[in-house]
């Protein structure tokens, strides 16, 4: 019998997240994939999970999971794990995923492996591959505890695959315990984002501290628009307040995998690299010939972004006959 692998499914902005579908693809490849989906979600969410490989969906639409963080979901998942004992449970390295895995790993005294880029099952034990230290290492690790193995998975580690399963939904009951309502969400504030999103962009033009200020991101926006892409940034640019956090790429930001990544005034710190180094083609512009980013670039220009980027923009316009 194939081992049962659970995926904690997440909904963000009314959609099942990409990482959920990626994890389902891997789970279905290694064993029998099942999903746990808690809280309000679009009506067709269970169908979506089944279409991407979930042969069963444990489901409660109770708003308690949306309005109170971590504790209700942890109680429900813990109950389900005790009852069904899946071999592995996968969580995304997301806000909710991390909080849940931390709670469950302590509750079951079983630990968890974080930052997982891939995994296999060998005679019931799990072998996870971890790109450690900003992916300068590629290590493997296992969990020696009994019971369900908890893994936190990096986004973009797997390709989502359509893998139609008959829809099987098992309703689960939400906990009524008031003590689980300790962390209340009072309000959700969406910060306005302009232009195409990083997720799914084929081309990303990204800026770092070398851009010197907020106003210079306009130049990157123009270049991205010409290439039909989106604009990203390093944490240095985000922490300086030049661009919103939603644009941050790297270990503590988004993981992206575009066809083309153009790094402008970015040094190539490991924490940035870990969020973009699997891009198909990397182009970089940096005035320092020793900048580490060049070691990861397919094409690099040692030069001033304020000269190279405007010329590139002009050149593209010329070639496009604009």
């Amino acid at each position: 019998m194939p081992e049962v692998i659970w995926v904690y499914a997440e909904v963000v902005e009314g959609k099942i997240t990409a990482t959920t579908l990626e994890m389902l693809a891997k789970a279905a490849e290694v064993g029998k994939a099942e999903a746990v989906l808690l809280g309000p979600a679009p009506d067709d969410a269970p169908e979506t999970l089944a279409r991407y490989g979930a042969s069963k969906v444990y489901r409660s639409a109770d708003p308690v999971y949306r309005d109170y963080l971590t504790l209700p979901a942890a109680a429900t998942v813990a109950g389900l794990i005790e009852k069904h004992k899946p071999a592995v449970m996968l969580f995304a390295s997301s806000y909710a995923g991390r909080d849940l895995a931390a709670n469950l790993s302590a509750r079951f005294d079983c630990g968890a492996i974080t930052d997982v880029g891939d995994f296999q099952l060998k005679d019931g034990s799990v072998e996870a591959t971890i790109p450690a230290l900003g992916a300068s290492y590629l290590n493997t690790a296992t969990l020696v505890s009994e019971g369900t193995k908890l893994l936190l998975v990096r986004p973009k580690s797997f390709e989502p695959k359509i893998n139609e399963q008959p829809l099987a939904v098992e309703e689960v009951e939400a906990p009524a315990d008031q003590a689980l309502r300790a962390i209340r969400v009072k309000e959700r504030v969406a910060v306005k984002r302009e232009g195409p999103q990083l997720e799914g962009a084929k081309v990303i033009v990204s800026g770092g501290r070398g851009l010197r200020g907020e106003e210079n991101f306009a130049m990157l926006k123009e270049l991205a628009d010409l290439l039909g892409g989106a604009v990203g940034a390093t944490r240095a640019a985000v922490d300086a307040g030049w661009v919103p956090y939603a644009m941050q790429i790297g270990q503590t930001g988004k993981t992206v995998k575009p066809e083309v990544y153009i790094a402008c005034g970015i040094s190539g710190a490991v924490q940035h690299l870990s969020g973009m180094k699997t891009s198909k083609t990397i182009i970089s512009i940096n005035k320092d010939p020793e900048a580490p980013i060049f070691q990861y670039s397919d094409f690099g220009v040692v030069g001033d972004v304020f000269k190279v980027v405007p010329q590139l923009i002009e050149e593209i316009k010329k070639r496009k006959g604009r």
Binding site: I262, I283, F294, S297, D298, V301, V302, G303, V308, L312
Partner: peptide, 15 residues
């Protein structure tokens, strides 16, 4: 990859 130094043509070379 290929790394070049900008000598006034860097933008064009990227294009």
């Amino acid at each position: 990859g290929k790394i070049v130094t900008d000598e006034g043509e860097g933008g064009k070379q990227i294009a």
